[in-house]
């Protein structure tokens, strides 16, 4: 009962956010609505028992990507979307995208209708419950198991990026202090 209500809230937030982000003219509002969509998706992950994935979604997308997007929108000359009109070719591309999304949605719906009963919790294979698939432990095992090399490469890349950020700041340190006298 409560679970269904919460599910509807999360799904509704995700859908409303997605539609709003595409439709609203004000760029800042569109970015915030994108955030609502991402938050709703994180909530949906919780219903799949994927608390780790939900937390990561919030850290990476809400705390990182969305802030970047918001910063980027603030560089726009026309944040409120009051002046510029959308060009026709862009509208055409948007319509094409909408068609594509509708096709995917229909395919998904057909798949759910065809196999939906097997997805119910009562019919689930206990060996393959989501918790066993995507919990923090399972993801950790995968990362340092079969995906060890990509994981190490990604970790190495991130560390290099972090050290490079520090090095970049250091390079500007001397002249700044010199100019301060």
């Amino acid at each position: 009962m409560i679970e269904q209500l919460l599910f509807l809230v999360c799904a509704g937030a995700a859908m409303a956010g997605a539609v709003g982000a595409a439709v609203v003219r004000n760029l800042f509002h569109a970015a915030l609505l994108l955030g609502l969509c991402l938050l709703g998706t994180a909530g949906l992950y919780l219903f799949l028992q994927q608390s780790y994935l939900a937390c990561l979604q919030v850290v990476v997308y809400l705390g990182g990507v969305l802030v970047l997007v918001l910063f980027a929108t603030l560089f726009s000359a026309d944040v409120r979307g009051a002046v510029q009109r959308t060009p026709v070719w862009l509208r055409a591309v948007g319509g094409l995208g909408a068609l594509l999304a509708a096709g995917i949605a229909v395919q998904l719906a057909r798949a759910v209708v065809a196999h939906g009963k097997n997805l119910l919790p009562s019919r689930r294979d206990p060996e393959n419950t989501p918790d066993a698939i995507g919990g923090a432990d399972a993801i950790g095992d995968l990362l340092v198991g079969s995906w060890l090399v990509p994981f190490l490469l990604a970790g190495f890349l991130l560390t290099v990026a972090l050290v490079a950020a520090v090095a970049t700041v250091r390079r500007f340190r001397r002249p700044l202090e010199a100019s301060r006298g």
Partner: peptide, 20 residues
């Protein structure tokens, strides 16, 4: 929750959005 430490970092990140 089994991911408490990550949860804390995730949720407190919302403050950034609020300030912006």
């Amino acid at each position: 929750v089994s991911v408490g430490a990550l949860y804390v970092i995730a949720v407190s990140g919302v403050t950034v959005l609020a300030l912006l």
